[in-house]
Design a protein around this nucleic acid. Structure first.
Lengths: 213, 213
DNA sequence: TCGCTTTTTTACCATTTGGTAAACTTACGA
DNA sequence: TCGTAAGTTTACCAAATGGTAAAAAAGCGA
């Protein structure tokens, strides 16, 4: 049976395959992130990728597979900064570094942020299981680390999960709500201001009350 | 020329008209907020409203008009808490009250929050002008108030706009990313935790360094 | 109750869209 | 260079979808 590279797990992909799959995913990221899953069409993705629609379906089994591929691929990159938190490091420094990294990602990878936001907004229909199996354990683990720091008096007491929500919300806001931020901020260097603001905010929240005894 | 209540501005609406337009908007809010503009279909809205599709188009000129009506209607309600900030009040109290109100809105009106998020995520294609003409002036004005408080030493110095972004981001996160929050928090009372966390966070950020001379 | 207006339904339509079949072309190892 | 497999295109399809025409069915003031 010849012909069938759509989702074959067996053979190793050819050069052309590698190149075209990458092109398609890049185009799909652009289109999905701006229009959402339903709002994106295969024709748009095809045009953006410079390929014909049937050709796209030669590499992926369908619209949904492209979307899911993108999403799962994204989640790993998305969680990398969280993995990078070092329990042995300085608590405040670890968390502020995390904030900085997340903010940088919002600036450098806004489409990824919006793709993710779109998916969650609609109830994570194509990602629910992944969140449960990948995100949740990591968050539980990170929460434990933060709890440990708090117990050791090295961090002001906060709910670790709500802290993470705050960090995600504030950093991703600059990507996800860019249209609104743009209207309100004009030409100003948004990133610099955001960086200073968030560092001050999380710094004050987390820095333990110096003395105390 | 009989028949034409779609968007007539002249006549005063009948009882039936009032009831059905309300039904349609309620149904549309439900559908648009979960599937986005493009993801929503008139058939879904019709089913949800308990009316036939042509009947819906008897009350509104088209899908887009329903969406825009909803959006503009929403923005007013959305900005009410911002209007409620009193320049003569206690700065910290005014802002924390604002945070509390926004958080309550996320809890009580999550669909509205998601509808708005969807629109902004996609670049505010149907709302851009409104943001410029309604939101921007109000934000500028509020920023002036906050600046005044800071200048008077009654509030720790922060960039008013980034402060507002932080408040919007953190409070709306609980509605917009509910699917994710649900996975990570389980059965816990999310609102209570969020409320405590956000009050602590913005309290610490904004409370001026007590003495100083 | 009559007659006119408002409201609702039935029957369609044109377009868009995800997807397929099969022919055609290109790449590449032997 | 030749044959086979990989890759691409052309020509379609069926379903979904936003929207319309026109007739039928309420409402309602006189």
């Amino acid at each position: 049976m010849p012909q069938a590279p759509a989702a074959q797990a067996g053979r190793k992909p050819s050069r052309i395959q590698l190149r075209n799959r990458k092109r398609i995913l890049e185009a799909a990221l652009e289109v999905f992130s701006t229009h959402g899953y339903r709002g994106a069409t295969l024709d748009q993705i095809a045009a953006e990728a410079g390929l014909s629609k049937p050709n796209i379906l030669y590499y992926f089994d369908g619209k949904e597979e492209i979307h899911v591929t993108l999403l799962n691929q994204l989640l790993d990159a998305w969680l990398a900064p969280l993995h990078a938190i070092d329990p042995a490091g300085d608590p405040l420094d670890e968390i502020l570094t995390y904030v900085r990294r997340k903010l940088a990602m919002s600036r450098d990878l806004p489409r990824e942020s919006r793709l993710f936001a779109n998916e969650i907004l609609q109830g994570a229909p194509r990602m629910g299981p992944h969140l449960e199996s990948v995100l949740k354990p990591l968050v539980d683990q990170t929460s434990m680390i933060i709890q440990g720091w708090i117990a050791a008096g090295r961090l002001s007491p906060v709910d670790p999960r709500h802290l993470l929500f705050s960090i995600w919300a504030t950093t991703q806001h600059y990507a996800d709500f860019e249209a609104q931020v743009g209207v309100l901020m004009g030409e100003v260097d948004v990133h610099a201001g955001a960086s200073a603001h968030l560092e001050a905010m999380f710094g004050r929240l987390l820095r333990p009350n110096a003395a105390m005894g």
